[in-house]
Design a protein around this nucleic acid. Structure first.
Lengths: 338, 338
DNA sequence: ATGAAAGCGCTAACAG
DNA sequence: CTGTTAGCGCTTTCAT
């Protein structure tokens, strides 16, 4: 009853395997009646083509890889979800390649998974690739698009990190703040450095453009995590001397950490301290966090769709796209009290 | 220079493809010298075996599937990460199958992805499978283990949800609370119902065992999200009459939502209200949330390791495991003030 | 519209 | 230790 191969179906339907193949894949050159009969038989026998076999024959795997530096952080898990949406709509599989796990094995990863042609295309989630890895990717000639950060030599869909950080910083300045600190993320693993750098640069330049002072001691690392935000806030609050009246955080997770630490110490937000973040994390709204919102799900979906189009032969399907963002004013920012 | 097939390598090394195959896969029956030579040539030529071809020949894909109801929620993204750790150590690939995307397409998913033998084994992250799907899985005879919730007829690694909820509830009771509300998660999508039910049951029974009253109106749905927690808290706080002095939440995300809403209203935690959660979410520590901690990363890793062992022929490698959990007392719980 | 047959690239017996 | 060869299951010309 159960069909293990296309031959079983062909035999049952009394046609050739070629016809079964055409019928099942919806190709022309099969009469409607035969097709229907074959489809019925195939479904009854529970037949599904072996992906390895068809992969070998066609050179396509119908799976797309997602290369991510982390899977459980806000941006990444959402972007993955977005890619997934597009893939499911097109019956493609998603292979998750989590770079965080690869200590020294990154090298091998690229040789193996990438070149083994286990995937038809690749989405790279904002991380910095080594020159040798970039070379590999170029040699592979696999369609690729970056999401959330640049990958040298490839198209990308992401927000303009400079503008985003500028928007957040300017919001604080417009409110009247002059003593503004910054919590950003310096990735120790070097998995992702373009984005934080851009946000950092924007912050500093926006400050200077407004005639404000940029203080090195008010530039802290928050590691893009809540815990990192808490630590940064501790440093800031423990430091002697003047305190900032506002803090720009390069991500909501860090901003929330800052807010929690502030609350623990009885520092009131926004009366004593304004806090602004980036992302619009699920916790931002309930926490009243002002932030510059972006939508990684959409970004991932868009990237995957471009790749899918490319794979189906559309010319120039892959191109760079600037993802939208906007400031969400909530209750964590207000004019300084003095 | 670049080798497209094993034959190229064989030709370059002046040996047969069989020898190349053995050499590369580290099989015996190849002299050390030949092996070394072949390896050198292969690497120089950038040769990597086609997974489709070897998959066809061996019937193995070296890919393990992870079936998840959501990818971006706390438990799931961590469990995926854990599975990934084990897979990477063994050079296996991870195929992510996100059920949330499949509206009506669940049916097809099982027929296609599952039966197409694109994966050698499957990790199912706590979700309720339909009888027809279970049947499919059984027929496939693919090694499978459930994580974080039961899948009928298969082994699982997860915490004892009854005990966990009981522990959290009892903590509140021990503190002296008598008016205790509950926020749990009722999954509308039916993707996951065993877990919340168990937690619910434990809560009610623990209350009754302590001689306390169980009030239907203090049982709220929080949808396992922060926003859901906020909504549940709104209902609770807006309701006329007596207020609970403590709230048991079936997940930290909901508990944090409750705390945020409490703060917004000036309800002090823990003076006016104690809150306890489950999970030990990253935000729990900074927020001071008392919770019953569990470790989904470990759970995922363990599950994947069992599957890997099973695949490498070890007998009875897959079995059920009770994952550890423990109460973390922090500052969100205290005796009731009156 | 349908079928026959030659691969796709690798693995696994079996010989030698 | 090494080579030969027959598949693995599907796709895809090329005939018919």
């Amino acid at each position: 009853m159960i069909a293990s191969s296309i031959e079983d179906v062909a035999a049952a339907a009394k046609v050739s395997t070629a016809t079964v193949s055409r019928a099942i894949r919806g190709l022309p050159r099969v009469s409607p009646q035969t097709r229907e009969r074959i489809l019925a038989i195939a479904s009854e026998m529970g037949y599904v083509a072996s992906s390895a076999a068809s992969g070998l024959a066609t050179g396509r795997t119908r799976t797309i890889g997602v290369l991510a530096p982390y899977v459980s952080r806000w941006f990444f898990s959402r972007a993955i979800e977005g890619v997934d949406v597009a893939l499911q709509e097109n019956q493609y599989n998603l292979m998750l390649i989590n770079l965080a796990g690869y200590g020294g094995g990154r090298e091998r990863l690229f040789e193996h998974t990438m070149l083994r042609k286990q995937i038809d295309a690749l989405v790279v989630l904002c991380l910095a690739l080594l020159p040798s890895e970039l070379e590999h990717l170029h040699k592979t000639e696999i369609p690729l698009v970056a999401v959330g950060g640049p990958v040298k030599g490839f198209h990308q869909v992401c927000i303009d990190d400079y503008q985003v950080a500028q928007l957040a910083t300017q919001h604080l300045i417009d409110l009247g703040h002059t003593r503004i600190a910054q919590v950003l993320g310096e990735d120790k693993n070097q998995l992702n450095f373009a984005v934080p750098k851009l946000r950092d640069k924007a912050f500093e330049e926006t400050l200077l453009a407004a005639g404000l002072q940029f203080r090195k001691e008010w530039e802290l690392d928050g590691d893009f995590t809540v815990a990192g935000g808490v630590r940064a806030a501790e440093h800031l609050f423990d430091a002697p001397g003047e305190r900032p009246t506002a803090i720009f955080c390069a991500s909501d997770e860090m901003a929330l950490g800052v807010m929690m630490e502030a609350e623990r110490r009885g520092i009131r937000v926004p009366q004593d301290l304004s806090v602004v973040g980036i992302d619009n994390h699920e916790f931002a709204a309930p926490a009243g966090l002002t932030t510059v919102a972006q939508n990684p799900v959409e970004q991932g979906r868009l990237a995957a769709e471009m790749l899918l189009n490319e794979l189906s032969g559309k010319a120039d399907a892959v191109h760079s796209v600037a993802a939208p963002f906007h400031l969400l004013r909530r209750s964590s920012t207000a004019p300084p009290s003095r």
